[in-house]
């Protein structure tokens, strides 16, 4: 087991964002978190990349409590693509990618030859090598997202956290990015809004609703019409993909369910 949440509880100014999350992610596993807006997906991820300290409970990486590590040490184990875009300053793409090496340095010493090579390979993998000398602020949203992925890769983490990595990407780049995640040997936890892409990408899905983990398991197991109605408040048909057999969620606009189930459920769990 590479990453584990043990009874992780997050409360900010009296507002409960996450309740007793228990979740284990095995080495090399790709786990997707899905759920409606405000269900605690990003909150859970933020506890893992140290942007947030859980009010109670423990997040473990490779068995150790990450709160016992200093930020530098945990950043050597866990890399993250956050929802923060870009930068204040017009750094070049290769400079931003090189920032991924920050946790492996104490001072300001320049990158070693091995590290430079690492950066080049990562940029090649996400197909941004041709942008190396361009300013980060002049890139399109999709290009920027790939730069940030490359930055996370050169961090050489054990665990990769991706908070809505497909934001701003067109469908081809979404598929390419998720295929790359799939090919990687890393332990990956990612938040996705597109349930079909999540089903195609992830070994297991965890479903959050109102700060509670309401289901976890293989996509076939989790993505059922009942759960979709219960958690997302939608009437959907689930079919098997003709080629991959992954569950695919189909919608029809006039089949929308009355919104009551999901909302009442959230309110109940918040009390």
């Amino acid at each position: 087991m590479e990453l584990a949440f043990h009874d992780v509880h997050v409360e900010i100014r009296g507002k409960r964002l996450l309740s007793e999350l228990n979740l284990r992610i095995d080495a090399g596993e790709v786990l997707g978190l899905v759920g409606p807006n405000g269900s605690g997906k990003s909150t859970a991820l933020r506890c893992a990349y140290r942007a947030l300290r859980p009010s109670a409970g423990v997040v473990r990486v490779a068995g150790g409590d990450i709160q016992q590590l200093n930020l530098r040490e945990s950043a050597q184990q866990v890399a993250a693509l956050t929802q923060e875009g870009g930068s204040d300053f017009d750094f070049t793409v290769s400079e931003v990618v090189a920032f991924g090496r920050t946790p492996h340095h104490r001072g300001n010493e320049p990158l070693t030859r091995r590290e430079q090579k690492l950066c080049e390979q990562a940029m090649d993998q996400v197909d941004i090598l041709h942008l190396a000398d361009r300013g980060i602020l002049e890139l399109s949203g999709g290009e920027k997202q790939r730069v940030l992925i490359a930055r996370a890769l050169v961090q050489e983490p054990k665990v990769l956290i991706l908070d809505e990595p497909t934001n701003h990407l067109d469908i081809r780049h979404q598929i390419e990015l998720l295929a790359m995640v799939r090919r990687s040997e890393l332990t990956v936890v990612l938040v996705l809004h597109d349930l079909n892409l999540a089903a195609a990408t992830c070994d297991r899905l965890g479903v959050l609703s109102g700060g509670n983990l309401v289901a976890v398991g293989t996509p076939q197991h989790v993505l059922t019409p009942d759960l979709l109605l219960d958690v997302f408040g939608i009437n959907a048909t689930v079919v098997a993909h003709p080629l991959t057999n992954a569950p695919q969620v189909l919608f029809a606009l006039d089949a929308a369910a009355p919104p009551t189930p999901a909302i009442t459920r959230n309110e109940r769990s918040n009390k």
Partner: peptide, 24 residues
Amino acid sequence: LRRYSRPLDVMSLGDESAASLGIN
């Protein structure tokens, strides 16, 4: 100030990104 060169670089990416890169 020069000793903080790299943290200053990384902080411009945002506080959460900086935390994920090991910068307090």
